[in-house]
Design a binder for these strands. Structure first.
Lengths: 146, 146
DNA sequence: GCAATATGTAACTTCCACTGTTGCGTAGGA
DNA sequence: TCCTACGCAACAGTGGAAGTTACATATTGC
């Protein structure tokens, strides 16, 4: 299976947008991400629906933040992307009546559901501002000792 | 992305194998799983390498358990399948030098790595015998109140 | 030895969701 | 009006699990 990189990419973009003065075009963002402007617009559209970013058409237009980084958690962005599948593994339901299958699925589901809840709680506890602060720290460290 | 169902399927099969008296052919197992005998042999081959099952050729041959269910954890089977990717989401590494990307990846990686460790620990704490006992409980409940 | 059974394995095709691309429509600024 | 930038539909590309076909090999039982 191929991996879903939308969450990672969108976080990356949002922090960059915060650093920029004005708006960024999907063309510019696509270059940041080494991808295509259409992919950028497609993915950012979900974030706009949830009010995290704004888009403007025409010259001088582009994308900009609609909220402060402090008010956005990593889990918010995950949800804005329509909560994509977190796990690459899942239970089968080939034989709904098979008690063995039910027992296996119960064991797996409880483990995976728990892991998912813990992970989402963790992502909810991290704001984009936290990440931006970590970025700033890395930038300082780099300029101090290049 | 399509989901990986090998773990779920193999657990299902192993419990069934424990219930059976003799060996099960890949043909029979394929019917249990609604799949193809070749897929079964391909997947069980990994478990055989790790000593969890045995296979015999010729008439009367087939697959059988090489260890007690008590001695096999769910994580053991996951590892015997070569530890497939657990998560459908991953970080990008398009710009190794971008400090924003590094900060984002650090945040995501720590959350995902933690979740993975917790999940694997949980899967390690559950033995196939535990699942078999749950199966037996379900069977009793069903026969008591059909 | 021979026939039947069952695994072992290579070499495909199929399937699915994210990703990438092209093309065209629409809105806004100068 | 022209240029810019987003909006969106409709594809093709991609990677890995799953499915399929074909054939080789080993074992049992006669």
């Amino acid at each position: 299976m191929k991996n879903d990189s939308r969450l990672s990419r969108m976080l990356h973009v949002l922090i960059h947008m915060d650093q920029l003065a004005g708006a960024a075009t999907s063309e510019q963002i696509a270059q940041m991400l080494s991808t295509n402007p259409v992919v950028v617009r497609r993915t950012l559209a979900g974030l706009r629906e949830q009010g995290y970013v704004r888009s403007l058409k025409g010259p001088g237009g582009g994308w900009s933040l609609a909220r402060k980084l402090e008010e956005i958690s990593l889990a918010d962005i995950h949800r804005a992307l329509d909560s994509p599948r977190l796990f690459a593994i899942s239970a089968t339901v080939d034989h709904a009546g098979c008690l063995v299958e039910q027992a296996v699925n119960a064991a797996l589901s409880s483990a995976f559901d728990e892991a998912e809840q813990a992970l989402l709680a963790r992502l909810d506890s991290i704001s984009l501002a936290d990440v931006a602060r970590d970025f700033a720290r890395r930038a300082r460290r780099k300029s101090a000792r290049p």
